[in-house]
Design a protein around this nucleic acid. Sequence first.
DNA 1: GAGCCGATATTCT
DNA 2: GAATATCGGCTCC
Length: 176
Amino acid sequence: MLARPAEELAPLLLGWRFRSTVGGRATEVVLAEVEAYSQEDPASHSYGGPRGRNLVMYGPPGHLYVYRSYGLHWCANVVCGPDGYGAAVLLRGGTATEGRPTMTERRGRAEHLVDGPGKLTQALGIDRSHNGIDLLAARSPLRLLLGEAPPGYSITPRIGITKAVDVPWRFVAQHR
DNA sequence: GAGCCGATATTCT
DNA sequence: GAATATCGGCTCC
């Protein structure tokens, strides 16, 4: 299921539930916005071969890749593609479905809880200690669960500058 | 609502 | 030293 290219998996992940029990408190979001990063994408951390922080991306699919963005925020990715291929899907945002009080507490505000990659990780209590964990294992504090697919989605390619590749691709679920 | 900016970790040149 | 897969607060409409 997850051992497929990022750009193929990304839209399929829309509507899936991302559940956290970090700190003994359950929080859950339904994914509504994701972005695909492949090994050939110059913008991807996995570009140029496995080394350093991107090692998790080259590992088996279904694991979590966490990195620090702009020195301030954590961003969560679902590793995909076959084992040995560096690809992942960045979880950009979703809809809070469970544990709103906990998210509000972690975020310090009751609105805009999970409408951005950095916000999503903060609301779910994700940090670097969760890098590399298995999202499919029953005992994991962070789990990916099958949900209901959205009625549709739109693809938003980012307009590149002069580079040939216009990735990353962004997939946004249509709201009902 | 759009646009600038500062904060800060890690990697790469 | 510069760049970066960002956010929130601040301006100025």
